[in-house]
Design a protein around this nucleic acid. Structure first.
Length: 572
RNA sequence: GCCCCCAUCGUCCAGCGGCCUAGGACGCCGCCCUUUCAAGGCGGCAACACGGGUUCGAAUCCCGUUGGGGGUGCCA
């Protein structure tokens, strides 16, 4: 059972110490069952799996349905316990009484989607898709000064590229400002919040003075500050007790109220703060499972406190995913690290590979088969199997995964996927060329590439590597790599070239015949084919590495090939 | 400083008290295949942070230490 979780805990703030048994006990019984389940077998990548992958999942047009009426209350989230020994998928019902799971991905509009966000979005999506729940999108743009509408476009674009389709939204928090103000007023009226006119400098100064921990000291709690310039609204945090909650990936987490300061819920501008908007919107949107980064773990008690103050009787299930880190094991950052999903797209990674790799950060399939269609990942993904330690975003492994996907592509798809990467090269003009009929007529540009594609395909790990491998098909003269030239064009390169030239004048223009001829040339000179092909390859492509030589010759055609051999011979 | 979280090969994951002489994957090294380079095949190197407990038995449970990270904003 992947989903509905034994959810919702009743509110439990004042020092309630709840045992972890509900979730843990449930978890282990499921684990035991999983261990007993038959091991699924590896299904080889190929056409069929592509069809079963997320290709099939269509991106629904995001038409925002109306939000539930504010204050209408949450559907109960408590999962029904079912009699053990029920269906294969688990001992607990898929059903959450009264509500299907609803999760959301709620990025801030930063202008692009970064890999950490993508991973969070993916895990939400996997969870939702795995249990028939809904995956919603919400843009957390309460900070008006920092958000502009166009900044969300790139995020949506990357999400679509990855195939993470959403069922509702995107809801913009900025559109809900009125609702947020209403809630703040409500909290104010109830005495759960108060106005504060302390400047940030004052707050800091007092903190230093008392030598205690930085943070707000409650100065304005009873000063009855009225509305005005520079006045914020703060939430009144309980002085006693603690807020505890059961986190699906971490077990019980607990915060003493003493360390939760009276936080700002409304800016002096009247705009709501993150915690307030987040709590209110999750409530109004009837979010049942909050799956987000661990960096938000310490914001959770605040959210819970706000919900409680609003009279919410149920809590969502929380799952704080381990953060993604760089090689120094610090949180991935925009400044130091390559984090934009869009950049990986530009660098020749396939969305399927990206998503597959991302699923492996903080989670692993029970059968150990890491590279597989998304549909199979959906079937196997379970929130409670997410592990707790930060994960290093390893581009090398991503690249490997990408290579596997690239190789498994039908040739025509590979050609199509590579085309944009070719087209951004200055030399890649169209070219329709002739055909190859054994008479050595030339194919040009893309057509030649298409012919060679299957051989190129298994030699690249990213699409960005393609141009460098096939440029000689497009260029009139190959770009000569000096290192390759120096290495290959030593004696007896002259003899090889001369003999090859002679042989190729008349040889049938097929890769097999071309191979046989060069082998014969080599034998005559007492050279292995390995040695003999080197000067020919460099003459033809400009490089010492590349696609198989004889197919390249064939596709390039007799005239162009001979011209290059002659040119190289003259340069010697 | 304070709060919270985390800790198995270099990296990602497996491990749920005996099946562990700790398994898989990436990377790395070697060999094979081979027209270059890949791919593929075979093999190898490589980890339970430390110290106490609990137990007949601990990588697995508990406590502590150390180390790392996150948070501590009128950012999210």
């Amino acid at each position: 059972m992947r989903c509905p979780h034994p959810t919702a805990q009743k509110g439990q703030t004042e020092g309630t110490t709840r045992s972890a048994s509900s979730v843990r006990g449930w978890t282990s019984s499921v684990r035991a069952e999983r261990a007993a389940a038959p091991r699924p077998r590896w299904s080889p990548p190929g056409r069929s799996w592509r069809a079963t992958g997320h290709d099939r999942i269509s991106v629904r047009s995001p038409t925002p349905p109306p939000l539930p009426v504010p204050g209408a209350g949450l559907a109960p989230l408590v999962a029904d316990r079912q009699v053990p020994g029920g269906n294969r998928s688990g001992r607990y019902s898929r059903r959450v009484s009264g509500a299907t799971p609803r999760v959301r991905f709620s990025p801030a509009p930063t202008g692009y989607l970064h890999v950490g966000g993508a991973r969070t979005a993916l895990f939400n999506w996997l969870f939702a898709r795995g249990c028939g729940g809904s995956f919603l999108l919400r843009i957390e743009d309460t900070d008006v000064e920092r958000s502009r509408p166009e900044l969300v476009l790139a995020i949506l674009d990357s999400l679509r590229w990855l195939g993470l389709d959403w069922d509702e939204g995107p809801v913009h928090q900025s559109d809900r400002a009125e609702r947020h103000r209403e809630v703040v007023a409500q909290l104010l009226a109830a005495g759960a919040a108060y106005r504060c006119d302390c400047s940030q400098d004052q707050v800091r100064a007092r903190a230093e003075e008392r030598g205690g921990p930085p943070g707000y000291d409650g100065w304005c709690r009873d000063r009855e500050v009225g509305p005005g310039e520079g006045v914020v609204v703060r939430f009144r945090t309980p002085d006693e007790g603690r807020t505890s909650f059961e986190d699906v990936v971490r077990g019980e987490v607990s915060f003493d109220h003493k360390v939760v300061e009276d936080f700002v819920i409304q800016r002096s501008s009247g705009a709501p703060m993150f915690v307030l908007a987040n709590a209110v919107d999750d409530l109004d949107m009837a979010i049942t499972h909050v799956i987000r980064g661990e960096d938000l773990l310490s914001a959770t008690p605040k959210v819970l406190l706000v919900r409680e103050a609003l009279g919410a009787s149920e809590r969502p299930v929380f799952a704080h995913l381990p953060i993604l880190v760089n090689d120094k094991r610090q949180k991935l950052s925009k400044r130091r690290d390559d984090v934009a999903v869009g950049d990986y797209r530009e660098r020749g990674y396939l969305p399927e590979a990206m998503v597959n790799y991302l699923a492996l950060l903080g989670w692993g399939p029970p059968d150990g088969i890491e590279i597989r269609p998304l549909g199979e990942i959906v079937e196997r993904f379970r929130l409670e199997d997410v592990n707790q330690a930060p994960a290093f975003f390893d581009v090398e492994k991503l690249t490997h995964v990408n290579g596997v996907y690239l190789r498994s592509l039908p040739s025509s798809s590979f050609v199509g996927a590579a085309r944009p990467f070719l087209e951004r090269e200055p030399w890649a003009s169209g070219g329709d060329g002739g055909d190859v009929d054994g008479n050595g007529e030339a194919l040009e540009g893309f057509e030649a590439f298409a012919r060679l594609a299957p051989l190129v395909q298994e030699r690249v790990a990213t699409l960005a590597e393609v141009p460098g491998m096939v440029d000689f098909l497009f260029l009139d003269e190959p770009v000569v790599d000096q290192g390759s030239w120096d290495k290959a064009m030593k004696p007896p390169a002259d003899e090889i070239l001369d003999a090859t030239l002679a042989a190729y004048e008349t040889a049938p223009w097929t890769s097999a015949a071309l191979l046989a001829s060069l082998r014969a040339v080599g034998e005559e000179l007492g050279l292995s084919l390995r040695k003999a092909q080197a000067p020919v390859r460099v003459a033809l492509t400009g490089r010492s590495v590349g696609p198989p030589l004889f197919e390249s010759l064939e596709v390039l055609g007799r005239e162009r090939s001979l011209a290059r051999l002659r040119a190289a011979r003259e340069r010697l």
